[in-house]
Computed example of a mutant assay.
Amino acid sequence: MTIAIFQCLKQSISLGCFPRLKIVHTSRKFMAKIYIPVVNWFLLASCLGFILLFRSTSDVGNAYAIAELGVMIMATVYVTLIMLLIWETNIIKVISFLITFLSLELIFFSSALSSVGDGGWALLVFASGLVMIMFIWNYGTKLKYDSELKQKLSRDLMRKLGPNLGTMRAPGLGLVYSEIVTGVPAIFGHFLTALPAIHSIIVFVCVRNVPVPAVPQSERYVHGL
């Protein structure tokens, strides 16, 4: 269960639905073996909080039942999508699988909903808060990216403005982070007009997640400052 939470958060970060967290790859061979220290401590605090809140094994069991059945329903939906889009299984088999498993899970889930007032409410509140955080973060990330994409500066404009600004070039290396992959971010134009000097070497950095546990030594670039 803990590894599944790590994987779900990793995918959410890759999709821009959650803030970036430190991810530790515990294996160089298997990509699924990861560890997120902050999330691990958060899970510990959450478990202790639920225990102190309920003080009853029956209430904890009710909350766990809703969570487990929710996971089962989502797993059935995802497997159905995989059967359709990736495995290209016969549609009759897909429908039979979906009706058989989803109907049973919905029956159990409907019975678990009767215990919402006896502990299940806490899990629903927690899940709603998490979904709200993911929605707001994804919305803000897209808004920021669209804004940077619209306001980016062309290289021709930078070449024309460069000699006329009178900006001094200091020795060293400067890193400018941006979400856009190509083009000059608008914030760099603000630096040129507001700062009296910039570094002689400017590197625009854009971070993108790739599904590899480690970067091969031959593909690493090391710069000594």
Rank of each mutant, 00 (worst) to 15 (best):
H25N: 02
H25I: 00
H25L: 02
H25S: 00
T26G: 01
T26M: 07
T26A: 02
T26H: 00
S27F: 03
R28I: 04
K29N: 05
K29M: 05
K29S: 04
K29C: 00
K29T: 04
F30W: 14
F30C: 12
F30I: 11
F30E: 10
F30S: 14
F30L: 11
F30Q: 12
M31I: 06
M31S: 07
M31K: 13
A32E: 00
A32S: 00
A32P: 01
K33V: 01
K33F: 00
K33D: 01
I34M: 02
I34F: 00
I34W: 00
I34N: 00
I34V: 05
Y35R: 01
I36K: 09
P37E: 08
P37W: 10
P37M: 13
P37L: 11
P37K: 13
V38H: 13
V38F: 09
V38P: 01
V38A: 10
V38M: 09
V38R: 15
V38Q: 14
V39I: 15
V39D: 12
N40Q: 15
N40E: 14
N40A: 11
N40I: 01
N40L: 09
W41N: 05
W41D: 02
F42N: 10
F42R: 11
F42T: 07
L43A: 10
L43S: 05
L44R: 11
L44S: 05
L44E: 10
L44Y: 06
L44G: 07
L44D: 03
A45Y: 08
A45I: 08
A45Q: 07
A45K: 13
A45L: 10
A45N: 09
S46C: 09
S46V: 06
C47Q: 07
C47N: 06
C47F: 02
C47R: 12
L48T: 08
L48D: 06
L48H: 14
L48N: 12
L48E: 13
G49M: 15
G49C: 10
F50E: 05
F50Q: 08
F50D: 04
F50K: 06
F50G: 04
I51T: 13
L52S: 10
L52P: 03
L52T: 07
L52G: 01
L52H: 12
L52C: 12
L53R: 15
L53N: 10
L53M: 12
L53S: 08
F54K: 09
F54W: 15
F54Y: 15
F54T: 11
F54M: 14
F54L: 15
R55P: 03
R55I: 05
R55D: 09
R55Y: 08
R55E: 11
R55F: 07
S56I: 04
S56T: 11
S56E: 08
S56M: 06
T57D: 02
T57S: 02
T57L: 03
T57R: 01
T57K: 04
T57G: 02
S58A: 15
S58F: 08
S58L: 14
D59N: 11
D59K: 14
D59I: 06
V60N: 10
V60A: 09
V60I: 15
G61T: 07
G61E: 14
G61M: 07
G61Y: 06
G61Q: 11
